[in-house]
Amino acid sequence: MKKQVRFVLRHVILLLLAVFWLVPIVWLVATSFSGYKGINTAHFFPETWSFDNYLALFLRPDSVVQYKAWFMNTLVIAIFTCIISTIFVLMVAYTMSCLRFKGRKGLMSFGIILNMFPGVLSMIAVYFILKSLGLTNSHVGMIIVYSAASGLGYLIAKGFMDTISISLREAAWLEGASEAKIFWKIILPLSKPIIVYTVISSFLVPWGDFVFAKLILNSGISADWTVAIGLYNMLNKSLINKYFSIFCAGGVVVSIPISILFVIMQKFYVEGITGGSVKG
């Protein structure tokens, strides 16, 4: 009997916690189907339901809502960012993990410190460097901002590669394989979980950043924006009362692909950071 009470209690607590965690998300989804465009502060669920916000998102682009364009822009930026970042991260991680050369540890510490430096602090300098390269207001510039310094985020990937047995590489050496070949043929195939993690996490960066995007895409032409700035802009004082429920719809749409990737990534992330201590 006592056991049953505890069983029920345990699940009721979980249920309460889950409700607490999901309330804002439910509100997001509910509001995205609201017939009222502004913020409904009197009722949790909308008074009139409508699918119109989603139609506005995709079928009626105006200067405020250019969702399709934003989505495509962000997608293109994200794809290139993810390719470059992944390559950079793997190159640095392999170098730091498997190769031995003078100054390696110094470089590693230096890299970790630099990686802790938040980009927000130096954004003005970043802006003017891009400007002197003629890359402001261009998606190439955005890709550079998101991916150029990505090599600094090597730590997790390195931790993973550290767990790959050195005997594999030694065997390859004896057969006369070059370092490049070992990297390509042995280490990379074994690093699949961490590659997936790096790919997805770098893919997600452009979807969430609005600080740099806002600074660099400053022409005011809304079709050039990314999803993040576009949605952020809808909550401007003068727009929020007309666009809040469209903002919610936009939030829901962008969440769908991202949540799927996110869930996949989590699994590999856990493998990546626990790999080192477990397999050892």
Partner: peptide
């Protein structure tokens, strides 16, 4: 997980 899979800027603004 659903709660955090929505991009941060969306949930926070919300």
């Amino acid at each position: 997980i659903i709660a955090i899979a929505v991009p941060q800027f969306v949930t926070l603004l919300l």
